[in-house]
């Protein structure tokens, strides 16, 4: 089995905050300043949810339409002043059932990750270097699933565009991390609720590699928008992966001690 990951706290842009839909005022700002302001608001609206537990199904489709199913559960703890802590438990395919991994993501520096292999009852500290590798053979790379941090990019506002009849800010994100599989991303964020609707990923050769589209947004805790479906299409291989949130609950009582090497071993 492949395991070397970086799993999301919560799938990056699946979470977006709603609340006050005050429009940003861009007057007198450069495209870079606009872009940063949008990203900052986007991030700010996704804070304060404390913890969550979700059950997810990934449907992997190849160019011939053949499907492979993956099922995972993710527990996430929001950490103030640093990246989130998360525990990912694999349920399907059945041969990796019970495998789990623990991630302490950090705003600066590399993340800490431990993997639990139930057959050997072994906990292994693993490298978090593998940002551009595929997560469970899907079209999601580990970095696509990691928590969104302002410091990882530089920004440029590209203008307004309409997606699904919604006015969206179009912002270019240039990656600062040389280990990333991308040079840049273009994201469409709706003006009303700051929800991501689409992301284009450009590879190291500057060609369009993948497009992620979000749909079926629902509101949680009267404040946090989350897309129930996220579909990643790879334009170069014609493969795609649909990530569906089967169940999600916020503020379930998770605390710091649910995220350590001892709790990793008892995660079933």
């Amino acid at each position: 089995m492949k395991i070397n990951t970086k799993i999301p706290s919560v799938l990056l842009m699946l979470v977006l905050a709603a609340s006050a839909s005050a429009e940003l005022d861009f007057t007198g700002q450069s495209a870079q300043e606009y872009g940063l302001a949008i990203a900052t608001e986007f991030k700010a609206r996704n804070q304060g949810w404390h913890n969550s537990e979700s059950t997810l199904t990934m449907t992997l489709r190849n160019a011939n339409g053949e499907e492979n199913i993956r099922k995972i559960r993710i527990k996430t703890l929001e950490v103030e002043g640093d990246g989130d802590k998360s525990l990912t438990i694999f349920d399907q395919p059945r041969d990796i059932k019970g495998a789990a991994f623990l991630t302490f993501s950090h705003v600066s520096g590399s993340d800490d990750q431990w993997l639990y292999l139930p057959a050997l009852a072994r906990v292994k500290r693993i490298s978090s270097r593998n940002k551009s590798g595929p997560f469970m053979a899907s079209q999601f790379a580990y970095e696509d699933l990691s928590s969104f941090e302002i410091e990882k990019y530089t920004y440029r506002y590209l203008g307004m565009e309409t997606i699904d009849e919604r006015d969206c800010y179009k912002v270019e994100l240039v990656l600062l991390d040389e280990l990333s599989g991308y040079t840049r991303q273009v994201i469409w964020i709706d003006k009303e609720h700051f929800r991501a609707y689409k992301i284009d990923y450009y590879d190291r050769k500057e060609s369009l590699m993948k497009t992620l589209t979000f749909s079926e947004y629902e509101l949680y805790l009267k404040q946090y928008w989350r897309a129930i479906q996220a579909n990643m299409v790879n334009h170069q291989t014609q493969k795609s992966t649909l990530l569906h949130t089967d169940k999600i609950a916020f503020r379930t009582g998770l605390i710091e001690s649910d995220f350590n090497k001892t709790s990793l071993k008892r995660a079933h």
């Binding site: 089995m1 492949k2 492979n68 053979a137």
Partner: peptide, 10 residues
């Protein structure tokens, strides 16, 4: 070697 394919070939 992990091939990272759908069949998780190692």
């Amino acid at each position: 070697i992990a091939f990272n394919n759908e069949a998780s070939t190692d």
